[in-house]
Design a protein around this nucleic acid. Structure first.
Lengths: 169, 169
DNA sequence: CAAGGTAGGTAATGTTATTACATCACTCAC
DNA sequence: GTGAGTGATGTAATAACATTACCTACCTTG
């Protein structure tokens, strides 16, 4: 599911990922590198099966789902890729240091993703969590709607309802 | 996928839903009512296929996925049910008036869901959205971690990583 | 080199969601 | 009251997403 992607901060490069892996003592294998490269070439969130097809093209041989999911798992664990829950898709990260800190605007029209920094909201989340004794790990914040470009283009009467018709949107 | 559910505010009743539907001029059909009742009886987020089985029991006949998904779509559109994205599951709502306003703490251990009010964060979201010209519709805020009960019970060394192992968690 | 561990290959299957089309039921104009 | 139109539901098939189980290859390290 390729889609327009409007990168917010600086994108992560393959070299930077290789460097971080080396620093962390984890293995940036050929497959993982190719998977990450493939993700970068899509401009936007990538479905697992789109990635599988991309890997097949690059490797010239069949690639099973577990192979792709394992690469994705590695990339997520290390903060190089973020899963976009409301799209069942994966997006290269911009800040491998603090993987749980991002939030996303997702355009229902063009598929654009726009990341924002959540650090200012952390305190609010933390205080609410503290009130109920909850210990927070992963944070998923995805705001769906209409991006600036699509508001100009369309009559813009859509994208505001809770359910966007078509399912998980 | 039944799971412990820790209700925050007052739960929505079938009668209240019926009343709201009548006010809105939408049809609370037998199927929709039964689906909502079934959702209420699970104590926590319900998978679509669990709902299908529940409907089959109640109706004494086969129920196909589209039937259940259509009922869920109606209930979501009207704010009676919220989809928990990171669980692929559905939860009866507590505030049909403002469906996009909730956020959830989700316990990775016992499956408990704890809703919190997001209104104080709205301003922050809105100001960020305004900066980039984004018009926000549905908001998905799901914070995963460990609830108070499970912190007491377990060694509590888990649930903090970005990827919870097992997939979409 | 053998033992143990990590990564990847493969087949099968499980789970979640949608498409396409048929049928049914209600309502409203006539 | 009848028939056209509309919205709701039934049904079969399939698409899309994800995991399990098991096996093989490789690499490290004693």
């Amino acid at each position: 599911m390729p889609a327009a992607h409007q990168p917010s901060p600086v994108p992560l490069t393959v070299d930077r990922v290789a460097q971080i892996c080396s620093e962390r003592g984890v293995k940036f294998t050929a497959l993982r590198r190719i998977a990450f490269e493939a993700l970068l070439e899509f401009n936007g969130p990538v479905g697992a099966y789109d990635l599988i097809r991309a890997l097949q093209r690059r490797l010239g041989k069949p690639v099973g789902p577990p192979t792709a999911y394992r690469a994705l798992e590695f990339l997520q664990e290390n903060g190089f890729v973020t899963r976009i829950e409301t799209r069942n898709a994966f997006l290269p990260s911009t800040h491998p240091e603090d993987p749980a800190t991002g939030a996303f605007f997702l355009c229902n029209h063009c598929g654009a993703t726009l990341e924002m920094d959540l650090t200012e909201l952390e305190a609010e989340f933390a205080s609410r969590a503290a009130k109920v004794g909850f210990r927070v790990g992963r944070r998923v914040v995805e705001l769906q709607g209409t991006c600036a470009d699509c508001q100009e283009t369309t009559s813009a009467a859509e994208g505001q309802s809770q359910v966007v018709k078509g399912g998980r949107g």
